[in-house]
Design a protein around this nucleic acid. Structure first.
Lengths: 136, 136
DNA sequence: TCCTACGATGGACTTCGTCCAAGTCAAGAA
DNA sequence: TTCTTGACTTGGACGAAGTCCATCGTAGGA
């Protein structure tokens, strides 16, 4: 994660304690926290940190591609720090838990030219849904 | 769409003017309206219809599988009446326009057992992203 | 050490959606 | 046809998630 801090610094980011804490909170695999959870965990280490700062920092991290936003139907956005290695998601329809997964095959190639409607298709996002062992 | 009304009646639904209007608004292909847009269009035909009723009706239609909720990163949910024929989505990163698409291949089968983490995987949702001709 | 522009703060505000008590009405019964 | 009843609708309050903004604080260069 100090890699991340280095990359941020080289982009001209000021390394404030708030940004450092947000980056630390997002460290790890299979991490898919909501903004509120990020705020909660960040506040445990830095009690004065504000919600606005967490939203700002997450938004900036998403903008520069260090973090992905995961869209979840009807729930708060989740933030996925594993942006540097391509992967897809498996989501529990019961509790909302998310795991990173790596399907085989080439989903982009599975979309025929005739189905592209003139779009310049650049990426594909796949979400598998089902019940996790705990919810089943 | 009168098919839909018949199916709803056979499920014991009362066919109120409000429900009829919501069903009419959702008629067609490549329709992906937000709840607010549904309300706007419904109100054009039935000015007294309330937001709560639109939300209720959409929720019920989703619950019985006649309409799909489409997750869009960050924006309001969209409702897709084309629930009876399986399809995926192609979304413009510029303007947010959505088209229904039909990829070849078997995305569900592309997820190896070792990547399922004990989940009972039931469905897969694929969103292709790119720029539409107008935005490119 | 000092300066200053970039970043943080917190509270108001917006958007999207849900809930509820009270009123209305579709459709079956007589 | 009229009656009855409980399912449906309404509008407004409420809540969660997210944005905006004026002001204050401070990282890091001079």
């Amino acid at each position: 994660m100090s890699d991340l801090l280095q990359r941020l610094r080289s982009r001209g980011w000021r390394l404030t304690s708030q940004r450092r804490v947000v980056a630390e909170v997002l460290d790890g695999d299979h991490v898919h926290l909501t903004a509120d959870e990020v705020h909660l965990r960040a506040a445990a280490r830095l009690p004065e940190i504000s919600r606005a700062t967490v939203y700002n920092t997450l938004g900036e991290l998403v903008a520069i591609g260090e973090v992905l936003e995961v869209s979840t139907v009807g729930r708060a956005k989740r933030y996925d720090p594993n942006a540097r290695r391509p992967h897809q998601h498996l989501m529990c329809s019961g509790c909302g838990m998310i795991r990173d997964v790596h399907p085989v095959g080439n989903a982009l190639g599975d979309l025929p030219e005739s189905e592209r409607f003139g779009f310049a298709v650049g990426s594909v996002e796949i979400t598998y849904r089902g019940l996790c062992p705990a919810c089943a």
